Amino acid sequence: MVWKRSPVGGVLFVALACLSYLFGTMYIVTPWFPLMLVRPTWYRWVVDKLIAWYWIFLVALLELVYGVKVRITGDSIKPGERTLLIMNHRTRLDWMFLWMYLIRRGQLSKEKIVLKNELRKIPGAGWGLETGCFLFITRRWEEDEKIMKKILDYLASIGHKTQLLLFPEGTDLTEYTRQRSDAYAEKYNLPKYDYVLHPRTKGFVYIAEKLIKEQHLDAIHDVTVGYPDGKAQKEADLLAGRFPEEVHFHVRRHPLNTLPTTPGQLEQWCTTLWAQKELQLKEFYQKKAFPDTNVLEGGKPGDPLRELKMRVVLWLSILFFVTVILVVPYMMVTSTSFCISAAIICAFYIAQRAVFGGAEHFQVDLYNTFHKK
């Protein structure tokens, strides 16, 4: 239908996304906070599953309602595998579309993302991202190093099978950021790129080296994303209804025993990957597809039952969250106690951010105080 890719459809998508995350965080995730005090690993498992259920809802909207198609080639993430996913940052929304890959070839509930600190300020969604224990960075290395160490140590301490998403480029590809990347290339006598930005390797090297040394990494997955027919560069494009027709992912798995171990080697390894990614994307935009290696479109090839099960889960997520979006406002209008509970929950999130700096710090500080040996 035409309205889906118009401002009407765009506003509806953003409204459903924001309301479901706000109400879901307040009334589905927050009640589990006391479990954090007695069983931190159980709490992390439950909350990660609940947050992933919300992400499944967004995937369901994108695929079933707005008709966004996904094409996946390359490798999967093995069950229970601890991995660092490094991905080119073509748009500001690549992380959302990556869920279409993870729901098929990874573990959506285990994903954590390295994000800009500004994203925690998104009403409702920011609380949910904090509760998910994501890594918010400020781009001040002295501070970011402490943040990454704190969160990664916590996840390792509870035995979390983390699938950590990092964008080494640091920002999405635009004309302005390409010019900055070109200036960097000129300064250091490097080639200029058209399809990627030169990676900022400091954060990647720190994370990879730390995970390797602490034996909390099984592989690195190199993810390349491409949009053959239109893209949503930023949030305003979603509001305008400019959804991509297709999203393509090509993934290469690099096992632990093939990875370099020294900082200098890791930096060169990442730089080489990005040079290869530039050539890969040049070919992609000429042919409008990645090479047909281990192709997966919508489900496992030759496994229609798997695809059917996934579609059932997607439709159930739509039914569930649409119900939540309708019921919560009704309860707020008809029940004084429900309104009071909403005020208390909002006050809690505002207070913990003021005191601890965010729900992720609140969780980790409680764990370190009462459980860490």
Rank of each mutant, 00 (worst) to 15 (best):
T271H: 05
Y184W: 05
L197I: 12
E214G: 03
V68T: 07
Q233H: 11
H216P: 03
T271P: 03
N189G: 14
M100G: 07
K161N: 02
V29T: 10
G126W: 04
M1Y: 08
R180D: 01
S317K: 08
G170M: 11
R140H: 04
P304Y: 01
L84F: 04
D194N: 10
K288E: 13
L135V: 14
F348K: 07
G67E: 06
E245D: 10
V46E: 08
A342Y: 14
R90S: 13
Q352N: 03
R92D: 02
F97E: 07
Y227I: 03
Y184R: 05
V355T: 12
P263H: 11
Q363H: 10
V324L: 05
V327W: 09
N189R: 14
A342T: 13
D237I: 11
R180C: 00
K146E: 13
L259A: 15
G203N: 09
R44D: 09
I344T: 02
C18K: 14
Q233F: 08
L115P: 05
R140Q: 13
W269G: 05
D229W: 01
Y193I: 02
W141V: 08
T201H: 01
T41N: 01
F33R: 03
A289N: 07
V70S: 14
L102W: 12
K300G: 04
V364M: 02
S181V: 00
P79I: 03
P123N: 10
H89Y: 03
A347E: 00
L211K: 01
L62M: 13
W99P: 04
T73Q: 09
I122T: 01
I350Y: 00
V327I: 12
I220N: 10
W269C: 11
T262R: 00
